[in-house]
Design a protein around this nucleic acid. Structure first.
Length: 294
DNA sequence: AACTCTCCCAACCGCGCAGGT
DNA sequence: TACCTGCGCGGTTGGGAGAGT
């Protein structure tokens, strides 16, 4: 026996929505919300539509924060980079593009971007030498903006150049970690990590000895081990802080070569974070969401 | 002008999952 | 534990619009 239909298809209208239906649905939702039940909604709103159809119409078209119109080049690049990383998880990709829906992104990919990408007209972050890091840049520290909805804590802080596009390899001597000391203990349990002020830990307070085996992770690309920078080779070098509760959480990660994060256009892609919280944020954080501290 | 082809996107479909009973 | 129901997701389709002949 097949699955029961979600509604009585003989008695619901299908096909394109009329302006009157749009207005009815919109005014009902603005006045009453969904009530947590899309299936019952059309009857309450006086619409001869399937609940799923109402939901789709609202989410993909009527919502006030929907952005209609063409995609920007930045959006193209974000989509391509995320597609490279996670494939066709359109809802995850769309969550990184404010105002865009998964349907929008999916349609755009299938009709335009796939071809554009094949033609080589979209920048895609990869492990090539284009991400070569220079250690001669002015050191800077980079932390997440306060209350970032990704839940990523401020105490994951990264050493970089003067801008995201200028992130470079850090040397052991340059290592610093900044963290929010006040709420460290709750970081793993809190979706929102309140900023209450940074502390700075000098490099001599960091345990540089620990390495994390990446045997369960696909081989990452090699970073030169001959420089004074941290070498990754086939391991991920994490500098864990050895101060109490920060021991687990505070880490400096190396950049740009696949694991654990990549610089992508206008932001940074966190492979591990994507796995932790794939449904909502996908591990991509745009550069505008970072604080810069020199 | 008429017809055909291609592109685009709104909408539909069915499945997997989560939550409730 | 099993079943039911609703939600959310990704894949697919249908038809309108515009381009090409």
């Amino acid at each position: 026996m097949g699955r029961a239909p979600c509604c009585d298809k003989a008695n619901v209208k299908r096909g394109p929505w009329s302006p009157e239906e749009d207005a009815t649905l919109k005014s009902y939702l603005e006045a009453h919300g969904t009530g947590g039940n899309w299936i019952a909604l059309p009857k309450k709103a006086g619409l001869r539509r399937c609940g799923k159809s109402c939901r789709l119409r609202w989410l993909n078209y009527l919502r006030p924060d929907i952005k209609h119109g063409g995609f920007t080049e930045d959006e193209d690049n974000i989509i391509c980079n995320l597609y490279n990383e996670i494939g066709s998880r359109w809802s995850v990709i769309a969550s990184q593009l404010p105002g865009r829906t998964d349907n929008d992104v999916k349609n755009y990919w299938n009709t335009k971007l796939k071809k554009k990408r094949l033609a080589g007209k979209v920048n895609v972050a990869n492990n090539s030498s284009s991400n070569t890091m220079s250690s001669s840049n002015t050191p800077a520290l980079l932390g997440f903006a306060s209350n970032h909805p990704s839940g990523l804590p401020n105490l994951d802080v990264y050493h970089c150049g003067s801008s995201v596009s200028d992130i470079h390899a850090f040397t052991v001597a340059e290592c610093q970690v900044i963290y929010d000391g006040a709420t460290t203990a709750s970081v793993h349990n809190s979706a929102y990590y309140p900023y209450t002020g940074f502390n700075v830990i000098k490099s001599n307070e960091i345990d540089v000895g620990s390495k994390v085996s990446t045997s369960s992770i696909s081989n990452s690309s090699s970073i030169s081990s001959s420089s004074s920078s941290l070498a990754m080779d086939d391991k991920a070098s994490l500098l864990t802080c050895n101060r109490g509760t920060l021991d687990e959480a505070a880490a400096i990660m190396d950049f740009g070569f696949g694991f654990p994060c990549d610089i992508v256009n206008n932001g940074i892609w966190f492979q591990e974070r994507a796995q932790e919280n794939p449904l909502n944020y996908g591990g991509y954080i745009p550069s505008s969401d970072f604080n810069y501290i020199c």
